[in-house]
Design a protein around this nucleic acid. Structure first.
Lengths: 233, 233
DNA sequence: TTCTATTGTCTCATATCGTGACAATAATAA
DNA sequence: TTATTATTGTCACGATATGAGACAATAGAA
């Protein structure tokens, strides 16, 4: 049992989260920047001794995003013995004037359980923690270099999201309640990283029978107005 | 850092493994039975302080099966805080005359990373560990009741295996080097839990172009002899 | 030689997917 | 009012994949 401040956490165990949001054009994720270091990392945290792992992740994500009920998928546990022995954490502690004893718990080995989250981009208020001065959206193709094995974690998160795209209701969690067919298609294209054919996509999605059609959306553009849809679940 | 005997392990972290083998008819998994308790569990173990998680699982599985290079897939990390607070471990320790202090490490909370393995049924020599008097194959539909959340782990392992069936070369790891089309079909049927159409299955598998055809297999049966195949990878 | 069970392959109807065409629209311009 | 333009909803056609049955080619036994 490891003491950190007043609370006891499970030792040597952490979680990291890849929080996906969709800006309307690009898929983005939340990245933290640590004070005075130029070091970037995924939002993560620790598990209290009497806390479920899933609960811990939800708790941490609520602090970073302000959202209570977040769609979460655990996708891998990273357990290489040297994965966080890369020196960056020492730099971060120095920059934050934290004491660096040889046995400081933050410098120990950590096994990390990785989750990805899907959230409605507009509903998020990115909030840094004590060690960081920012928590911001970055497009997947414009990520800064990340500490430790976090780039690998992001890569695996995206791979898993792609594999799950057909089996889970991904669009529902990245879009607002009502959306147009084009918006849904943009989400699929951003995740798959390839363009899709409009007619094929529309036919396929509609044939699933999971969409409910609503009123039209008049945007002021001089062309036919698209229908709005919502998920029927 | 937790001392167990002479060696130091990561505290509060374990792994459990669902080892699949194919008997020719049914899908089976390895189950351990603890001394004098009638309690059954998945093979599992702990991670040394300086050991990669994947290495630890390979090491443990080599001890249970005798096989060096095992096909492994990590599929979930089980982290509920009460998952191993079910009292069974205390019974096992009493039956083995181990001291039960209040703070015994075996009774603490454990987060467990679960793996499934695919192995050639015939090559395994199931070997119990110190706490168990057997390590044996059980058909999936004839499993004994398992301790803690191990039944849930098995269920999730099978679900994952089914999902991975099309994307990974599952058959290669459950069958001997050479096999008939019928044997391969039986593997697929055992995993999916449903019967498949012979002609459709054969056409589909052959169209993948991953099989190499060898000589015929004459078994003495009074009918056309099937070809033997091997994976082309 | 005949018979039986199994295997390899083919055919045909059906379903699904890639591709393009086209009419219906919402606002603007004439 | 009437063209114009960009976008959307839907259909049509061929190509490809899948479900389901048919049938000839065996290997051994009767």
């Amino acid at each position: 049992m490891t003491k950190k401040g007043e609370i006891s956490y499970l030792p040597n165990l952490a979680y990291d989260s890849v929080v996906f949001g969709f800006s309307g054009e690009k898929l983005k994720i939340l990245i933290m920047e640590y004070h005075n270091t130029g070091l970037f990392a995924l939002p993560g945290g620790f598990v209290k001794y009497d806390e479920d792992l899933n609960t811990a992740v939800k708790r941490g994500l609520k602090e970073r995003t302000g959202i209570e009920d977040i769609y979460l998928e655990q996708f891998y546990c990273f357990g290489d013995s040297k994965r966080n022995a890369t020196g960056e954490m020492k730099t971060i502690m120095e920059a934050n004037n934290l004491p660096i004893e040889e046995e400081n718990w933050m410098l120990e080995r950590f096994v990390s359980v990785a989750y990805y989250a899907l959230i409605n981009y507009e509903m998020v208020v990115p909030t840094p923690d004590e060690l960081s001065d920012s928590c911001e959206w970055y497009a997947l193709d414009e990520l800064p270099p990340l500490i430790q094995d976090h780039s690998i974690i992001v890569k695996k998160a995206l791979e898993t999201l792609r594999l799950n795209l057909e089996r889970k209701l991904v669009g529902m969690n990245l879009l607002p309640e009502k959306f147009t067919m084009k918006e849904l298609q943009k989400v699929y294209e951003a995740i798959l990283g390839e363009e899709l054919r409009r007619t094929t996509f529309q036919r396929k999605i509609l044939s699933l029978g999971i969409l409910k059609r609503h009123e039209k959306q008049y945007t002021g553009a001089s062309n036919k107005a698209p229908y709005l849809y919502s998920f029927n679940v």
